[in-house]
Amino acid sequence: MKPAPFDYHAPRTLEAAIALLARFELEGVEARVLAGGQSLMPMLAMRVARPQVLVDLGKVEGLDYIRADGDALLIGAMTTKTAAAESALVAAQQPLFHAATRLVGHRQIRNRGSVGGSFAHADPASEYPAVALVQDLQFRARGPSGERWIPAAQFFVSYMTTRLDPAEILAEVRLPPLPPGTGWAIQEFARRSGDLALAGIAATLRRERGQCTDVRICAFGVNATAVRLPAAEQALLGRPADGEHFSRAAAIAGESLEEPMSCIHASADYRRQLVRVLTGRCLEEAATRAA
């Protein structure tokens, strides 16, 4: 299990990294960005990923930070998950993202794995894209022609594919605040603790006069990307935040999935069941946090 040969560059600046990617694109050389490497390395070792060049962001200055931007939080793409998990700022301002971070793998993985890398890798079983969709995260992409902000709803395209162009690099993630009074929850089901989720749900909701408002439910691990479940969300809007309605929404969540993935650990119908169960549990949990 040794990777096929590749060349390696470790630029010091984002500009230099982008210039390298632009050059390789022009030359028809297959280049890949290396962030923490925790997902890419196994693919290299198994030779299922065979880039000709790796451009490592590890030495790029200024991509490792967590800072407040008004009510929002800005996280540099190369910030490690451990840094995010241990950040008091993240814990205080972004409880859902914080909880999601703690669900990622194990300590050794979080120590190396970057926040930006997980978003850009866009593994459908990853917790992060689901949080992005629930909370309308925004992604700052830098490329040869400057920078642009990509909203979460457009960022994830399909299985391990994002809106980023070949010469673009995800530089920063912007997490808007959860509106006051928002209840949140994230739960997942995996065969073993720390394994990739067979299915998971991230959800937020608010309550006004006992009625659900602004319900957001997103499933991960079931389709090629994380998916919002609008039918289930709609079913709760304006309805009482109680077990009966949560159950109904959960049932709709399971039914509304489009062709869930199937693997040896979970068939499509079992994934529907997991989504149903986890949706119900997340809504219950979120409701306890909603003011």
């Binding site: 065969r191 073993r192 603790s193 720390g194 394994d195 990739l196 040896i264 650990h265």
Partner: peptide
């Protein structure tokens, strides 16, 4: 990833 030996948990 698929051969699931028990972890400490």
């Amino acid at each position: 990833v698929d051969y699931l030996m028990p972890t400490i948990h």
